[in-house]
Simulated assay, not measured.
Amino acid sequence: MSDQTIFIVEDNPVIADLISWRLTEMGYHVAGTAEDSTQALIRIGEIHPALVLMDINLPGEMDGIDAASEIIEKFKIPIVYISSILDADIMERAKKTKPRGYIVKPFTDNQLRATIEMALQG
Score class of each variant (00 low, 15 high):
residue 47 I to R: 10
residue 81 Y to M: 11
residue 35 E to R: 09
residue 107 F to I: 04
residue 106 P to S: 15
residue 104 V to I: 10
residue 101 G to R: 14
residue 73 E to W: 02
residue 57 N to D: 10
residue 99 P to M: 07
residue 56 I to F: 07
residue 89 D to M: 09
residue 44 I to K: 09
residue 39 Q to M: 10
residue 50 A to F: 08
residue 84 S to A: 15
residue 56 I to E: 09
residue 61 E to G: 03
residue 26 M to V: 12
residue 78 P to Q: 06
residue 83 S to P: 03
residue 107 F to H: 06
residue 98 K to V: 11
residue 73 E to R: 12
residue 109 D to F: 05
residue 93 R to M: 00
residue 27 G to F: 05
residue 44 I to Y: 04
residue 52 V to R: 02
residue 52 V to A: 10
residue 38 T to K: 02
residue 28 Y to L: 04
residue 29 H to N: 13
residue 69 S to Q: 04
residue 105 K to V: 13
residue 121 Q to D: 13
residue 45 G to V: 05
residue 46 E to R: 14
residue 117 E to F: 08
residue 117 E to I: 05
residue 59 P to F: 11
residue 102 Y to N: 10
residue 24 T to N: 06
residue 110 N to H: 13
residue 71 I to H: 09
residue 97 T to C: 07
residue 121 Q to L: 09
residue 62 M to V: 08
residue 55 D to K: 15
residue 65 I to S: 00
residue 85 I to S: 09
residue 28 Y to H: 05
residue 34 A to Y: 04
residue 59 P to L: 14
residue 94 A to T: 04
residue 70 E to G: 01
residue 86 L to S: 12
residue 115 T to G: 01
residue 111 Q to M: 15
residue 61 E to T: 00
residue 31 A to D: 07
residue 88 A to I: 02
residue 75 F to L: 11
residue 84 S to V: 10
residue 66 D to L: 03
residue 67 A to N: 00
residue 27 G to D: 02
residue 112 L to N: 06
residue 109 D to N: 15
residue 63 D to A: 10
residue 60 G to E: 01
residue 58 L to G: 00
residue 34 A to H: 00
residue 80 V to D: 08
residue 32 G to S: 03
residue 63 D to E: 02
residue 59 P to Q: 15
residue 56 I to V: 14
residue 40 A to F: 03
residue 89 D to V: 03
residue 103 I to R: 08
residue 42 I to P: 05
residue 32 G to W: 09
residue 112 L to K: 09
residue 26 M to E: 15
residue 117 E to G: 07
residue 49 P to F: 12
residue 113 R to N: 15
residue 65 I to Y: 06
residue 33 T to Q: 14
residue 57 N to R: 08
residue 102 Y to F: 12
residue 115 T to K: 11
residue 33 T to N: 13
residue 108 T to G: 06
residue 65 I to Q: 00
residue 76 K to M: 02
residue 52 V to T: 03
residue 31 A to K: 03
